[in-house]
Amino acid sequence: MRHPSEWRQIGIVTIYIGLLAAMYFVPACRNPLFYAAAFYFSFLNSVVIHNHLHQGIFHRKSLNMGWRLVLSFGALYPASANIPSHNLVHHHFEEDGQPDWADPEIVHFRYNLLNLIHFPNVAGPQTFSGVQRWKAVLKRKPFTRQYYREQFFAFGLTAVLLVHDFWTGLFFVVLPQLWGARGILRINIIQHDGCDLTSEWNHSRNFVGRAFNWIMCNNGYHTIHHNKAGLHWSQLAESHNRDVVPRIDPSLDEPSMFWYLLRTYGFRFLRPTRASIAAAEQEAASLPLASRVDRCTEAAARSGVSGL
């Protein structure tokens, strides 16, 4: 294993798969506690996909590829889709002339809660059609082979469970899987809506609660993750406090995601208007940063796939 902190990610996925297996095979486990936990851990499984596709957990390539199969089953989509959709396209925003497939502006409801609910309905298909285009034209054979292996494993195993017992499989495996997959898409609107995507430091919203970041493997620190995509997730908190805090608008450092969601989607009807948030960045000393495209080339190299 590359880093001792990876045990946390392995633990998360093990618990998640254990919950699904327990609910599927043991009727006594089909209770609200297990069910709620399965939905929550499904989202965390998608967080682990994100981290693993930036930096593989293991030294050995075969183990990393095998781990992707497990993660793909957990989220019911090929984990390798993250390479083009997240590492290469989302991390660039629109700097390279290609619209982000998960741009917060792809949803337009006046009632803001509907934007949050509907977002995966647009971002998901855009992502997968984008990956198909990328895959079809690139003809990257190792990527394509791995992508199909993950698809075969994820859909195949899920299909076996559905054929064996459709309703149990649907309620206790497929619904949690879909929740996690759609949840990780929703994170895009949560972390970027209302931010200044043209700014170097104020393009993302951070959730900085300590407990939240422990279980989320530091995925609350999103600005520094964008700016230093090659940084291991265990180092994000320190780097956030050192480099990001002096340069971002304090409103982009949210203490609690739960409170943010309630405030933004529960207690208000309309979508918040974008405020001028880049003042802190202009006043602070500048830091040398590579272009977004170059940063992503580094991230892509770590994923074992060269950049577009």
Partner: peptide, 17 residues
């Protein structure tokens, strides 16, 4: 559909709805 419903378990009818 497998198994009998027991106390504490989520009823399939609720989940279906």
């Amino acid at each position: 559909m497998s198994g009998q419903w027991a106390w504490g378990q989520l009823p399939y009818a609720w989940l279906g709805v």
